[in-house]
Every structure is written in structure tokens, then in C-alpha cells.
Amino acid sequence: MIAIVKYNAGNIRSVQNALAGLGFESRVTDNRQEILRADKVILPGVGEASSAMQYLQEKGLDKTLLALDQPMLGICLGLQLMCRQSAEGNTPGLGIFNANVKKFPPAARVPHTGWNNAGQLRGPLFAGIAPTADMYYVHSYYAEITGQTVAVCDYITPFSAALQHNNFFATQFHPEKSAAAGRQVLKNFLSL
């Protein structure tokens, strides 16, 4: 069973639908035991960092997620919450990744909305994906590039399109909204 962490309003139905399309059942849950028992855990995206983090802390889910040894995938805001610190509401993150999350400069057209490249691909998440593949992004904050960066996107500045540390994976783009290429990323994660 795949656990999709419930922590905020937003469109998590698409994640569920994408998993179902790949033949995987999932449950949207904020129950700690259920999350710990899951084969894989997805922390979906969309929302605001400080209120999302507060929700995770109130439910004790921050500690639960840190304790996971099964593969976990953060998506969009999920990726940002897994970083050290977010400029959005000056929010301390889970600190799984050693990246900080910054806001795009005011001169930029934000949110960064639409299809953009994910390049310099590394690791199992991107098996079978062309380095020219475009993914769907929608975000106003970005994670800086570190040694844990496994995909790079460039909008105003290069940033982490994906990060990986041990069993923890995350994408800034929405694989569930990125047509065939995104489907392959999810498939790769599910077959870890």
C-alpha cells in the first residue's frame, strides 16, 4: 500500500489517480501507524510552507517521516518541506536534504508555471528518461543546488528539480501532471 500524506488542502486527487493508472492502490492518510507501515510514502505538493509544516508537527508527522526507511517521494511543496529551511514564512523544514528553499527574485514572473526541462539527471528516479524531457512545474520558491541534487531545472537561476538522500526522493515538478515522462518517474519510484 502507498500512503499519501494528508496535510493540507490542494489537489492530491491527481497523485492518487496517477498511482491508480499505474496499478497501485493508495490511501490518503495522516495516521502515523498507517504511514509507518506503508510500502512507500508520498508527500504531495501545493500549499503554503509554514501552515503545512505546522500541520505536520501538530500531528507528529514530522518525526514519523524522518523515521521512514522505506522509499519516500516529496512532490513540489513536499520537496521544499524536506529541505533545511524555507524562505516561505521563514519555515524550518524536515532537514532531510541539505538545501535551503529560496524565493525567486521579484523581477521574475512567478509562479514559475509550465513545462520546463529537468536535466543533469542522476539516480534511479530518472531511469529511462531523456535528458531533454520537459516536466510540469508550478512554484514560487525553489531549492538550491547541492550535492544531493539529482535533476536540475533553470528558471532565472538553476535550481534543484529533484533531490535524493538515501531512501528519500523529491521532485519540484509534478510527475502526476507531466504526461508520459512524469508517469515514468512515478513508475521508477514505485518499482524501487
Binding site: 488542502a9 486527487r13 502526476e176 507531466s178
Partner: peptide, 26 residues
């Protein structure tokens, strides 16, 4: 469908929006 989609027309309240987003609109 596996790309983003927008829904419009006659949306008047936060409640309308909530129902559409929960149903899967981006």
C-alpha cells in the same frame, strides 16, 4: 488525463472551488 487542467464558468464561492479542487481540478 495527466496534464494540468483548469475549470471555469459560474464559480462564485470558496465552496465551489473546494469541490472542484477536491474532485481533481488543478
Amino acid at each position: 488525463i495527466t496534464i494540468p487542467f483548469t475549470v471555469g464558468g459560474g464559480i462564485n464561492t470558496l465552496n465551489d472551488v473546494g469541490r472542484l479542487i477536491t474532485a481533481g481540478a488543478d
